[in-house]
């Protein structure tokens, strides 16, 4: 039985700028999900995120898991409207794109 892990982004990366920063978070998330844990990601002290970071940290998970699994096991807290809009917009676009190739 898995547990709920809270992941503070700023505990793992000094900046949220590049794909490389996002990959650090992606690898932690993937590891926790593989161990059957649910993850709650905290954006404390972060007010907005660029697309490169969101792509490599979160959207990349769609290559490993289906969207339903991600929705059930990944959540976000201490977030802002700007961050939420970007994450949802990125996932929504990616899901639609992938449907075209199914």
């Amino acid at each position: 039985m898995g547990r709920l892990v809270k992941l503070h982004i700023k505990d793992y990366v000094d900046q949220v700028y590049s794909n490389d920063d996002g990959v650090v978070i992606y690898q932690i998330l993937k590891n926790e999900l593989e161990n059957s844990n649910k993850v709650s990601v905290s954006f404390q002290d972060i007010k907005a995120l660029n697309s490169s970071f969101i792509n490599s940290a979160f959207v990349e998970l769609l290559n490993d898991y289906d969207f339903q699994f991600i929705k059930e096991n990944l959540s976000f807290v201490d977030s802002t409207k700007a961050i939420n809009n970007t994450i949802k917009s990125r996932f929504s676009f990616e899901i639609d794109e992938r449907k075209q190739y199914v």
Partner: peptide, 12 residues
């Protein structure tokens, strides 16, 4: 300039 805090939900 909007940095309003907002709870996240996948289904909104």
């Amino acid at each position: 300039f909007d940095i309003e805090e907002e709870g996240f939900s996948w289904d909104d």
